[in-house]
């Protein structure tokens, strides 16, 4: 099968970029989108052109490395699927595909479809953890956790940090990502001691990184490959407001 790609090419962070058109024939509907780009890159390499840079690693939808916009939708048209698992059978022969990198001030483009998502790491570093130095843990069964709480925490913890939520959001908000971690830890008894300071610190860090606000429109939820729900944002708002309202402010620094 044949596809016509329009791909954002940008040499490095400082350079201007543009969309470049590539026609690629001889593709197989069982290929993944990334395999199609592999094949395109083999051609470009042989022709002496620079291959398209895109991020990828596990290619089974769990590492969160890959991701770009396909025709204006983060990770493309198939729900709950990262581009590494998106097979070409979901496209038509001869279809034109516009591939663009995630765009957000907090995700500067490094090259072509590759962006810098280290802002996510800094959000986690600001409080997305439970402080448990190695060796200090009590027996795993000391604190019972209801099956429901564990399942809901797992729902939120399934986030792979790919950044599709930011990319799809008209405001480039990182609320789904941040809310997912706040919810995951806040739903567990172990996460309670730091719950207030975690919300204050992570929300503040998210803002400092230059992400936009959440307007509850739900684009993030729609494109999230792991099905993280808007509920996590509500939980983040709840924890943040409650912590802000509290008479004694928890230490945030």
């Amino acid at each position: 099968m044949k596809l016509i790609f329009h791909i954002w090419r940008q040499r490095d962070r400082g350079s201007p970029g543009r969309m470049v058109r590539y026609e690629k024939d001889g593709l197989n509907p069982d290929m993944s989108m990334l395999e199609a780009l592999d094949v395109l890159n083999e051609d470009l390499t042989i022709k002496g052109e620079d291959p398209v840079v895109f991020e990828h690693d596990c290619r089974e939808g769990i590492c969160g490395s890959c991701g770009f916009m396909i025709n204006g939708v983060a990770h493309g048209p198939l729900l709950k699927t990262t581009v590494c698992q998106l097979t070409l059978r979901h496209f038509e022969n001869g279809q034109e595909l516009y591939l663009e990198p995630w765009r957000a001030k907090a995700f500067p483009i490094l090259r072509d479809l590759m962006v810098d998502r280290s802002a996510f790491d800094r959000i986690i570093a600001s409080g997305g953890y439970i402080s448990t130095p190695t060796g200090s843990a009590p027996d795993g069964n000391v604190i019972p956790i209801s099956k429901e709480a564990a399942e809901r925490a797992m729902d939120a913890a399934a986030c792979i940090g790919c950044g599709a939520c930011v990319a799809a959001c008209p405001n480039a908000s990182a609320s789904l990502f941040t809310g997912a971690k706040i919810s995951h830890l806040g739903l567990l008894p172990q996460g309670q001691p730091e719950r207030a300071s975690r919300a204050l610190r992570m929300v503040a860090r998210m803002n400092e990184e230059g992400f936009g606000q959440c307007t509850n429109i739900g684009e993030c939820e729609a494109v999230c490959p792991k099905g993280i729900r808007l509920e996590v944002i509500s939980r983040m708002n709840h924890d943040f407001l409650k912590a802000s309202w509290a008479a004694r402010q928890p230490a945030t620094d």
Binding site: E100, R103, A172
Partner: peptide, 22 residues
């Protein structure tokens, strides 16, 4: 904040799950 958060827009963008009102 919103306009600063995405200084360069997409050439194409398609809603995937939001309402017109929102």
């Amino acid at each position: 904040t919103k306009s600063e958060a995405r200084p360069v827009g997409y050439t194409r963008w398609k809603p995937a799950g939001s309402s017109y009102a929102s």
